[in-house]
């Protein structure tokens, strides 16, 4: 119930080693920036993915989101590099 769904794309996915996972961060994790710090502390893989936060973009419930965007249980939060389509 308190879980968040985290999805990863491109090299962020490769560094973390999974395309998606369910996590249950503590209630102090209230925004995207806080979630990044909490995920980075999980293990070396997550730390490597977020080593340079300037290169990682985020979306909350499939809308682009900055570091101050709130996150809540039940949200789908995505992390990915700057986009390169077209």
């Amino acid at each position: 119930m308190s879980a968040m769904r985290i999805v990863y794309f491109a090299w962020v996915r490769q560094r973390v080693g999974t395309a998606e996972e369910e996590v249950s961060p503590p209630p102090e994790v209230r925004d995207v920036g806080g979630l990044v710090r909490w995920l980075s502390a999980l293990d070396e893989r997550h730390a490597a993915a977020f080593a340079n936060p300037r290169l990682v973009r985020a979306a909350v419930n499939q809308d682009f989101a900055g570091p101050d965007h709130p996150v809540r249980p039940g949200d789908e939060v995505a992390f990915f590099p700057p986009v390169t389509g077209g």
Binding site: V36, P53, V56, R57, A58, F64, G66, D68, V83
Partner: peptide, 14 residues
Amino acid sequence: GQDLHGQDLRGQDR
């Protein structure tokens, strides 16, 4: 519109 924009995750030095 911020929702169109992929912001980076630096808080302070944007």
